[in-house]
């Protein structure tokens, strides 16, 4: 097991290295210059460039950047003057993570339950109803669903706050909007997976033991159905916890989502690279955890 994990960690480190390198050079390919400004004297612009080390030749910049990365330093933001990238992430990530995690936990619970229900009532009303919902959930973008929910729940019924961050009730609507895609996706894949397991021989064995249907489903079918679902989990966790630009802008949530977009329009090199590397490390770590979890669910994958 230790060997298996250390191998996975090595691969993860290599992934992050490639990601950091690729991002570094790609960012330099973006046309434009963050310091170019008619109102600022050229001498000042040069001084600014020198402060961020952008006057040095590219290979040297790369080495400095990678060296800092090893020390865990991501540099200073260009637009948010005086703040380090680590600072920005430390402030905004917990917000996105809290919203994302809440949304994800409910999305998994609801999605998997819906999937099981669909499979049990295959071809009957609950199945059709939930499948229509799932298709809607996948097709409806958050910028459409968000305003509709805010109009109904926030403005007309006045049961939930329209925007803001801090209270638990302010989290409900963004969590729904953020999680709907995951719910829909999970419902569909869980349904397919449960149906595939229903016809497995060992389900017949379980029924032949005289187990009631609920035990057959929960003890025999459910765990086996999770096997094809688990691998998606790493990507789901990472994408939902990193914050969504649309959802966070709509509900005025001080999360990480907007920085992903803003950093690029602002040509904030250190922030772009810092966020990308952070995302990469997080994603790779989550996938690593999911790999271990996968082994717990399916003993056949466990490596001695």
């Amino acid at each position: 097991m230790l060997k298996y994990i250390s191998k996975k960690v090595l691969i993860a480190l290599a992934t992050v290295f490639v990601l950091a390198t690729a991002t570094f050079f790609l960012v330099k390919l973006i046309p434009g210059d963050p310091f170019l400004n008619d109102k600022i004297p050229v001498a000042v612009q040069d001084k600014q460039r020198a402060f961020y080390g952008l006057d040095k030749p590219l290979p040297q910049q790369y080495l400095t950047y990678m060296g800092n990365l090893l020390k865990g330093e991501l540099g200073y933001s260009i637009k948010k003057t005086g703040r380090t990238v680590v600072d920005i992430i430390a402030e905004a990530f917990p917000v996105s993570a809290k919203l994302g995690l809440t949304s994800l936990v409910f999305a998994e619970l609801i999605g998997l339950t819906f999937g099981i229900l669909c499979a049990q009532f295959r071809g009957k009303f609950p199945d059709y109803f939930l499948m229509v919902l799932a298709v809607l959930g996948i097709a409806l973008p958050s910028m459409v669903l968000g305003p509709i929910l805010r109009l109904i729940l926030g403005v007309k019924l006045r049961i939930l706050p329209v925007t803001g961050w801090g209270d638990w009730d302010q989290m409900i609507m963004p969590a729904i909007v953020l999680g709907l895609g995951t719910i829909a996706g999970n419902t569909r894949s869980m349904r397919a997976s449960m149906l595939a397991i229903t016809t497995q021989d060992y389900i017949k064995t379980a029924r032949a033991k005289g187990l009631p249907p609920i035990k057959v489903i929960l003890k025999h079918q459910f765990k086996n159905s999770l096997v094809p679902i688990i691998p998606n989990l790493g990507v789901q966790i990472a994408s939902v916890m990193m914050g969504s630009f649309v959802v966070e802008s709509m509900f005025l949530i001080p999360g990480l989502g907007r920085y992903f977009v803003d950093s690029i329009t602002n040509l904030d090199y250190p922030l772009i690279m810092g966020l990308t590397v952070f995302y990469g490390v997080f994603l790779v770590t989550m996938n690593l955890l999911v790999d271990v979890l996968y082994g717990l669910i399916d003993p056949r994958i466990r490596v001695k």
């Binding site: 060992y202 032949a208 033991k209 187990l211 399916d298």
Partner: peptide, 27 residues
């Protein structure tokens, strides 16, 4: 169905053909 279930695996039990597919792989 529930009366029948009390007999299944209890008074009437079955050995299936293929021990490779009739055992639950995750238990």
């Amino acid at each position: 169905v529930s009366e029948m279930r009390k007999l299944q695996g209890n008074q009437l039990s079955i050995i299936f053909q293929d021990p490779f597919t009739f055992l639950n792989p995750t238990m």
